[in-house]
C-alpha cells in the first residue's frame, strides 16, 4: 500500500515526493517461494544422499543459505522509503533504510538541485547540495520520474 508506514508531515508541504521500492512479491509469498525452493533443492539432495551420493547435500545447503541471505536482505529493505518535502523555508529529506530512520533539513534558499548524468552506469542520480554536503534522492524512482521530480524541485527552489 503506497505510503504505509511513512509518518505524516507536521505541516502541509508545498511539494512532497515519496520514493519507495515496489515490493512486488510481499513478505508471505517471499517465504513461500523460499520454502518451495528449499523443499526442491534439499529434497533432491536428501534423495541423492539416501542413494550414497551425500556430497550433493552440502552444496544444496550452502545454496539455500545464500538464497536465505538474499531474501532476508530483500525483506529488511522491503519497507524502505525516502521522502523529499518542501515546507516553508526548509527542504526536508527523510529516509528509512532497514528500519533506521534519518532526517536531513536544508535551507531552501541555499539548496542546489543537480542531476548527475552517469554515463558510466547509463543512469542518472538526483542530488541536493547544501553547504558542500550532498544527499541523493530517488534511486528507486524510474528514470523518467526522477527527471520530473528534479525539474519540479528546481523550479520550486528557484521561484523564491
Amino acid at each position: 500500500m503506497p505510503g504505509a508506514g511513512i509518518p505524516l508531515l507536521s505541516a502541509e508541504p508545498e511539494f512532497c515526493v515519496v520514493s519507495r521500492r515496489n515490493d512486488s512479491l510481499g513478505s508471505r509469498w517471499r517465504w513461500r517461494v523460499y520454502a518451495s525452493l528449499c523443499i526442491l533443492s534439499l529434497g533432491l539432495a536428501l534423495g541423492f544422499a539416501a542413494l550414497g551420493a551425500w556430497m550433493v547435500l552440502p552444496y544444496s545447503a550452502l545454496e539455500m543459505a545464500v538464497l536465505y541471505l538474499a531474501f532476508r536482505w530483500i525483506e529488511r529493505h522491503a519497507a524502505d522509503w525516502e521522502r523529499i518535502s518542501v515546507c516553508g523555508d526548509r527542504v526536508i529529506v527523510e529516509r528509512e533504510r532497514a528500519g533506521t530512520r534519518t532526517r536531513r533539513e536544508f535551507n531552501r534558499y541555499w539548496t542546489r538541485v543537480e542531476v548527475e548524468e552517469d554515463a558510466f552506469n547509463h543512469s542518472s542520480r538526483l542530488k541536493l547540495w547544501f553547504a558542500g554536503q550532498g544527499v541523493s534522492f530517488g534511486d528507486e524512482l524510474p528514470a523518467g520520474k526522477r527527471a520530473i521530480v528534479a525539474r519540479d524541485l528546481r523550479r520550486l527552489l528557484a521561484a523564491r
Binding site: L40, S41, L44, A45, F48, A53, M55, V56, Y59, E63
Partner: peptide, 10 residues
C-alpha cells in the same frame, strides 16, 4: 537452483 548442487556434488 535445483540442479547446480547436483553437478557440484557429482
Amino acid at each position: 537452483i535445483a540442479v547446480m548442487p547436483v553437478l557440484a556434488g557429482a
